[in-house]
Design a protein around this nucleic acid. Sequence first.
RNA 1: GCCAGCGUAGCUCAGGGGUAGAGCACUCGAUUCGUAAUCGAGCGGUCGUGGGUUCAAUUCCCACCGCUGGCUCCA
Length: 640
Amino acid sequence: MATIRLTLPDGSVREVPAGTTARQVAQSIGAGLARAAVAARVDGQVRDLDRPLTADAPFAILTEKDPASLDVLRHSAAHILATAVRELFPTAAIGFGPPIEDGFYYDFGVERPFTPEDLTAIEAKMAEVAAKDYPFVREEVDRAEANRRFRDDPLKLERIADLGDDEVISVYTDGPFVDLCRGPHMTGTGRLKHFKLLSAAGAYWRGDSRRQMLQRIYGTAWWKKEDLEAYLHRIEEAKKRDHRKLGKELDLFLFHPFAPGAAFWTERGTSLYNTLNAFMRELQRDGYQEIRTPLLYNKGLWEISGHWGKYRENMFLVHNNETGEQDMSLKPMNCPSHHLLYGSAKHSYKALPIRYSTYDVLHRNEVSGALSGLTRVRQFAQDDCHIYLMESQIPAEVKTLTRFILDYYTTFGLKATLKFATRPEQRIGSDEMWDRAEGALRAALEATGLPYELKEGDGAFYGPKIDFDVADSIGRTWQLGTIQLDYAAPERFDLTYVGEDNSEHRPVVIHRAVNGSFERFIAILIEHFAGAFPLWLAPEQVRVLPIADGQADAAGQVVAQLRNAGIRATLDASNNTLNYRIREGEMAKVPYMAVVGQREADAGTVAIRVRGAGNKQEILPLADFQARLLADIGARALKP
RNA sequence: GCCAGCGUAGCUCAGGGGUAGAGCACUCGAUUCGUAAUCGAGCGGUCGUGGGUUCAAUUCCCACCGCUGGCUCCA
């Protein structure tokens, strides 16, 4: 019998007869490992423990400690969910049931949507299925057999029809349930112990709104009870810092039914907004030209830009009283108007790069169901910038931009990771052009020294791009900034510059955004800081509290002096107890409270209470306090 | 847009076919207080909007508006 060579993670090689299963290898290494084994990684692919090994390969046993084993657990949990649903709803059609981040889902075609009571019953049935510890049995079948087995399952038949002829069709059975499935799965249903169903929602078959709607059940599953509890706790914590809740509590913004998807910014919210904008303006003081362009355009512009075709349904069209037609639109993006401005004059190669920046209001007609707080809105402003430059200037420019964006995030304590998206199938431009463009972007990425993820084929049709993902204080990630090379727009808008040779050349355009939109970025900041903004961002930086009426004037003078120094200070001399006012200040998450009692009034000092630090007061001369505030604001310190 | 849930005072929520309640906020009065809620009184709602069923609707039904979750991280 032939032997095969398995290379273990420690570099050692084991020779075993071909046909040996991963479980047998695990047993030969140790009984403990065999018990802990969930699946195997063979040649980079996660596989069932009981599949025979047929060729030389790098080999590793996956245990519960390996993050990849969670996908196996969750995918198996999805099957167990389907098993339970089929027990309770025998006619349910079955769609897809993959593992997802933190959990799994499964789609079902049922007569009526699931109710919360259904979920409770299904969850209980899942526990029964798990307790029975049905083995997951894998079989390979041919197409005819697959079609026969799933003849009552139109959704599965459709999937089978999509499979290529060279693909192995596999089927997994656990107890009464059989599913078309690529696998892998854990050995038996009994390993599912810590799980919870979370929600049910409609979901289009294959995400296509023209197809039938299925009912999706979401759940989560973990190896350890503590992990499940920690995850549920994390969901609760995330709810507590939900920007929609905090936005109301901290009086930052509101939404009104008369303007769905467009925020009203209160004084405090506007302060936050303006502070961010001022910061961006300061960073772009040199080398950028801030411009403003119209909000409303004739369709002619959108025909040139290409938006009038496919993107029109996302634009707010405006009725023209003279033509009687909706032949105008509010701008959904700034680029076309920037191109018009660039094209309105001759530009020397000596003037490049030209960087236009804009904070204009944009409108996009998002479908009603997509709106959500500040993160999905119909009206917003980007920190938008378009850079016109020669191709030879791309490497240096991208490097500078990347640094700029990363430094910006660091100011907020946000950690960024990078994604590099290269040429898609459908694209314009020559391969040489793409080679140069991708090379320039890649070089800039390498120069940061940061890890980046390669997203091959994920670029725009007009050029490659770098996307910036940011992780907030509770580990969620958001896609924020972007650097996109655009070779198409200069053609469409016939943009040129005059080169050294005195003839006209095409510039390249870079689209750059850092915040994405101010609205969404503020939402992220609210959740990142849980509403407790660092001093420099806080709408109210200092709240001054006289202890009693006798110190009201002295406290008022403290406020006046701080405000003269440009500090956002307020006075709370209301007729409430000091305890009450302290509580109010803490709940408003004001970074500093400055208490002025008779001792302080006499001595020209203030008693400082730092947000969240309890009653560890510090008494210092007003001038010192002011100096400290100004230093921290100037440094954009993250604490307090 | 589609599926589901929700919409009761400024906020958080209870209630439920016989024309509504709590806490906080707000107003007034008393209290002048040393680091997370002083006491008392009062004001406040055509129960999202429109229609229907009914002797009677905030409650049941329908439509609309808005909000929330979800709508391929491919068997």
